[in-house]
Computed example of a mutant assay.
Amino acid sequence: MSATSLPEQKKALRARLRQARREVSATRGGELAARAHAHLLASPLWRQARHAALYVSLPDELDTAPLLDAAWQAGKTLYLPRVRQQYGLMDFVAVRGRDELRPGPFQLLEPRDELPGFGPEEAGSAFRPDVFIVPGLGFDRQGRRLGFGGGYYDRFLSAVRRQDGGCAPCAFVGLCYHCQLQEALPAEAWDERMTHICTDREWLCL
């Protein structure tokens, strides 16, 4: 058994995967993102979804802007995250276009403050998207996710599951470059698992 603690393993993996993602984004980001978009947009999961939860990508993440446009053009209800002042919590807000976004923390664009949102309290009940696209620094082939360390998505997705007896009431799709997909990741009890993984090379149903 490794003497390295789980938090230390995660910290080292985050640094390595962040660097790999940065290098890919700087060289082939547009090309590989387009391939990942094609996998997601061609899936029955996306085509049949009427309500989709997504996110606005960071500069070195796989670009989600074409997915936002695709959702709006298809007439889907699109929910985007807005971080609360209370650390570790966020709401998801229905957004009809880019004019309803404003700069937020973590270099992110977020829904404007006056727009109503759904928090973990409503997750799985009042707020129940058909598909939940989730960011991450890494994913593995068992659906494990390595997040950014703040716990925002784990808390929210856990609340979604609790409302449905521990099962995911909608699809949780991890979106990333293929270089971020690992064979296995270290995981803790509260780490939420994905039901699908989408990369520039693969569409995995788990």
Score class of each variant (00 low, 15 high):
Pro81Tyr: 03
Leu89Met: 05
Pro81Phe: 05
Glu110Gly: 13
Gly75Met: 08
Gly143Tyr: 02
Leu137Ala: 04
Phe92Pro: 01
Val134Tyr: 01
Asp154Asn: 10
Glu121His: 09
Arg96Ala: 15
Val83Cys: 11
Ala126Glu: 06
Met90Pro: 04
Ala70Gln: 06
Arg82Pro: 00
Pro105Met: 11
Arg128Ser: 06
Ser125Asp: 14
Gly149Ile: 14
Ala123Gly: 05
Leu62Thr: 07
Gln142Phe: 13
Gly151Lys: 12
Asp60Trp: 06
Ala70Thr: 11
Arg141Tyr: 11
Lys76Phe: 15
Leu68His: 03
Gly104Lys: 08
Gly151Arg: 08
Asp164Asn: 14
Asp60Pro: 00
Gln163Val: 02
Arg102Gln: 15
Gly136Gln: 06
Arg144Cys: 11
Thr64Arg: 05
Val131Ala: 03
Leu62His: 07
Gly97Gln: 05
Ala94Glu: 06
Tyr79Val: 02
Thr64Gln: 05
Arg98Lys: 05
Ala71Ile: 12
Pro111Val: 13
Phe118Trp: 12
Leu137Thr: 01
Gly150His: 04
Trp72Arg: 06
Gly75Val: 14
Asp140His: 07
Leu80Glu: 04
Pro66Ser: 15
Lys76Gln: 14
Phe92Lys: 00
Phe148Trp: 09
Cys170His: 14
Arg141His: 13
Asp154Lys: 05
Phe132Lys: 06
Phe106His: 08
Met90Cys: 10
Thr77Pro: 00
Pro120Val: 09
Arg144Thr: 11
Asp130Tyr: 03
Gly143Ala: 07
Glu114Gln: 08
Gly88Tyr: 12
Val134Asp: 02
Pro103His: 09
Arg155Trp: 09
Arg161Met: 00
Leu68Asp: 03
Asp130Val: 14
Asp91Ile: 01
Gly119Ser: 07
Met90Thr: 10
Asp164Pro: 00
Ala94Trp: 04
Leu80Met: 11
Pro103Asp: 09
Phe92Asp: 02
Val131Ile: 11
Glu110Gln: 15
Arg112Thr: 06
Pro135Tyr: 10
Gly138Glu: 02
Cys167Gln: 14
Thr64Tyr: 04
Gln163Phe: 10
Gln85Lys: 10
Asp154Thr: 07
Phe139Lys: 01
Gly124Asp: 04
Asp113His: 08
Phe139Gln: 10
Ala126Asp: 07
Arg82Glu: 01
Arg155Val: 07
Gly138Gln: 07
Gly124Phe: 04
Arg96Thr: 14
Gly119Ile: 04
Gly119Leu: 11
Ile133Cys: 04
Gly88Ser: 00
Leu89Lys: 13
Pro116Thr: 12
Gly119Glu: 00
Ala65Arg: 12
Pro129Gly: 12
Ala74Pro: 06
Glu121Lys: 07
Ala71Phe: 03
Pro105Asp: 03
Ser158Trp: 01
Gly124Ala: 10
Tyr152Gln: 12
Phe118Asp: 06
Val131Pro: 00
Asp63Gly: 00
Ala65Trp: 15
Gly150Glu: 05
Asp69Ile: 07
Glu61Gly: 02
Pro111Met: 06
Ala126Val: 03
Gly117Tyr: 02
Gly117Asp: 02
Arg162Glu: 15
Glu114Leu: 12
Ala123Arg: 01
Tyr153Lys: 09
Pro129Thr: 12
Glu110Asn: 13
Gly136Glu: 02
Ser125Thr: 14
Glu100Gly: 08
Leu67Ile: 15
Ser158Met: 01
Val95Ser: 01
